[in-house]
Design a protein around this nucleic acid. Structure first.
Ligand code: ZN
Ligand code: ZN
Ligand code: ZN
Ligand code: ZN
Lengths: 161, 161
DNA sequence: CGGCATATGTTACTATATAACATTCTTCGC
DNA sequence: GCGAAGAATGTTATATAGTAACATATGCCG
């Protein structure tokens, strides 16, 4: 399975499926995917990158929204708290989830060359943090797992230079 | 081995050892642990918590330094880039390293009750992020691993309430 | 329709971090 | 010791990220 965003994956399809999944989730759980919220999600899905709140704000303006910071942050709050979007802590930036709906603790690989962000399929309870936590009785409620580096393509480019 | 900061560990000793280790490192590598830098490190070591840059700034003022933001950030730059301090990304805050000198990718457990931060002894190359990265040829250069939750003591307290 | 809950618009502000340049302190060759 | 070069600090101003508070609008239900 090498179907990550780093090799040529069918992004149109991936994007459409994610949007559909969110629509389904909202219908099922009585959530309102309003125009602002949907636009923020679409912007993030389209880029497959981590965007800052103020980048989103600019895009919202371009799409004709009145856009003060709270508008972007409120849309993000909604999307984050329902698991449709994740925050990349090391960049204060936001990225669309690849498996929206499925409850999961996310992990990421972030390329410093092209800024693409790949979401890991799932975290492993055998990971050393989790093992250490169990050993000392620390109750983990939220994890931040982010690996920064170079994707295969960007690594090749850097080696050639 | 339950010698974490969450159970009663000899903090005076732990603090002293860390400071000594940093002194030794600086001597060995020709680094200058100036008064500001040393004070920032001491403040962080003393609290065993993650402090924001502006918290540090206040403490520096209390210790008689002239203190504008760049003063704190420059001291932090020095301490971060030499591995004496780590940044807790999910809080935009900084914590002293427990094994300064030894090169290591850090991981943390952060209690949301008492704010204590425990640094994991070491990360495991078998952790799922690393395995996934190897599989697709992603070259990891930096990892952020942070687990937030409740330490044993704070969990007990919350259950009683 | 009226009333309640939810979502958005808007202003102003707090918190985090850096750019740029002036000044002082160290080091080291002379 | 003296002066130049580099390193560290002082200082002002500004960039970037995030929130509080209150006004207005919109959807939903009886
Ligand atoms: Zn996800
Ligand atoms: Zn790349
Ligand atoms: Zn460390
Ligand atoms: Zn605690």
């Amino acid at each position: 399975m090498t179907d990550t965003i780093f090799d040529g994956h069918d992004h149109g399809r991936c994007q459409g499926m994610a949007l559909d999944a969110v629509d389904a989730q909202c219908a099922a759980r009585g959530l309102r995917l309003t125009p602002v919220r949907r636009d923020v999600l679409e912007i993030l899905l389209k880029s497959h990158r981590a965007l800052g709140a103020y980048d989103l704000l600019d895009e919202l303006k371009a799409r004709g929204h009145k856009a003060q910071p709270p508008v972007a942050y409120r849309a993000l709050d909604f999307l984050l708290s329902n698991g449709f979007v994740h925050k990349i802590e090391q960049r204060n930036a936001y990225v669309a989830c690849c498996q929206p709906g499925k409850a999961h603790a996310p992990g990421f690989m972030i390329c410093r060359g092209c800024d693409l962000v790949a979401e890991l399929p799932s975290p492993d309870p055998q990971d050393s943090v989790m093992v250490a936590a169990r050993q000392i009785g620390f109750a983990v409620e939220r994890t931040v797992v982010e690996a920064e580096g170079l994707c295969p393509a960007c690594k090749r480019e850097e080696e050639e230079a």
